[in-house]
Amino acid sequence: MVQVGMLLSDVPRSVPPDQQFQDVLRIVGEAEQNGFSHIAIGQHFLYGDLRWMQPVPWLARLAAHVSPGTKLVTQVMIGPLYHPVLLAEEIATLDVVTEGRLVFGVGLGYRAEEFDHLGVPYEERAARLDEILELLPRLWTEDEVTHHGRHFRLDGVRPHIRPVQQPHPPIWIGAFAKAGARRAGRYATGYAVPPELPPPAVAERYELVRTGMAERGLPFGPQPLRRNVLVADSAEAAVAEYARVAKGRYVTYAQRGLDVFDAGKLEREFAEAVQGHVVLGTPDQVVAQLTDLVTTLPVDPLLVRPQWPTMDADETVAAIRRLGRDVLPSILPLPSHSNIPLLDAR
């Protein structure tokens, strides 16, 4: 059966941090009551007018709040900004604290200023991430690690924190580019598809992941798929509401270096610019679109974003309840598949 998860959002800095914390506890509780099985949070540093709570302490606290069956996901951490030992110990500790419910999602990062702030060369991020991904499983499983690489050197270090999950937590790599899908095939257990990729591009990248996993002797299973979803009483109302809550963030993402969209087109023709990847409409229309995704692509879990920084906690709770009432009862019973011919989804 397909599982459905929820991505937590950043919020305006005008929201007091303690209120944000209480709001998140409420939102997560509503998500669990409405059928969501994964809680995911991303990562940014020095994010201007918005606040991202850092995922490791945030998820550690949520582990004590959610039910034992709920998975906690870093979606995604910016891997190249870390030393591999620091990242290995943070994630191993988080897996212990979450009692083996952690999914470790990691990616390259796209905001050059974050790398500048932390003194890491932006142009080295791909090579750094590859080296980190080579080292993490060793630091989680080996008694002694020696590594002389381009960016990191370890001489006979003896890791002292083992994750609860064996051999280690699932690793999801999030990326837009085909190079990221190839990286997932080489190093990961899953490829977390960004919400902005349309289904034909998703299928193309899944095929790259499948090929890479086959070369490692690993089976290709259902993959996490992110979608931005909004349900309303009519298709027109859904488009209008999505523009209200999300348009500003899309424009900001484009201006800050996420080169998936043209900021000018987003300003002029927002509905057309997001068409093809956003799931909008009436309950029946949203169910039909999501059903098509999970029956033509090997999806599990489906990760949806019901919250944007422009929405307060009450609006977010209302969106979660509507998904739980009108959409999830039709999606959760669907079987997940790993043997779907991907060319059929193009």
Rank of each mutant, 00 (worst) to 15 (best):
A177V: 07
V73D: 08
G119D: 04
R268D: 14
E90F: 11
R346E: 14
P298A: 05
Q3T: 15
A263K: 07
L334W: 02
G69W: 11
A175E: 09
V239G: 13
R322D: 05
Y250V: 10
P198G: 05
P55R: 05
A181C: 02
G190F: 02
G29M: 06
A237Q: 14
Q255P: 12
E207G: 14
D312R: 11
D23F: 02
A179P: 03
R322K: 07
M77I: 14
L135F: 12
F115H: 04
P195D: 11
A232S: 10
A318F: 11
P121K: 06
A192R: 06
A345V: 03
V164F: 06
G42V: 06
E32F: 02
P17Y: 09
P200C: 04
V294I: 04
V327T: 01
D10H: 11
G212K: 04
I132S: 10
F261R: 02
G185A: 08
E207R: 15
A60F: 13
R182K: 13
G264R: 10
P301S: 03
Q20W: 12
I132G: 07
L197M: 09
P55M: 08
P200W: 07
W140V: 09
G48Y: 08
R128L: 08
W140M: 08
I161N: 09
G35E: 04
L94N: 09
V304I: 13
V294Q: 02
V245E: 10
L323S: 07
A214K: 04
W172H: 09
Y122N: 02
R227Y: 07
Q307V: 12
A184C: 09
R305L: 10
V286P: 00
P84T: 07
K178I: 08
G29A: 05
V202F: 10
G42T: 08
F36H: 05
D143E: 14
E196Q: 14
L266P: 04
W172G: 06
L266A: 09
L133S: 07
V56S: 11
V145S: 09
R51T: 15
P17V: 09
S14E: 11
Q307L: 13
F36T: 01
D49P: 08
T98M: 08
S330F: 13
E272M: 00
Y122P: 04
I320K: 02
A288R: 05
Q166N: 00
V2A: 11
S330W: 02
L293I: 01
P16Q: 00
L8I: 00
R13M: 01
H83R: 10
Q54M: 15
D259C: 09
L225E: 03
V85K: 12
Y110E: 12
T70N: 05
K178R: 14
D23W: 13
G281H: 01
G257A: 07
V299E: 00
Q19F: 07
D155Q: 14
P333K: 04
R158S: 12
Q165L: 00
I91E: 06
L218F: 08
V279M: 03
L302Y: 10
E142K: 14
S37P: 00
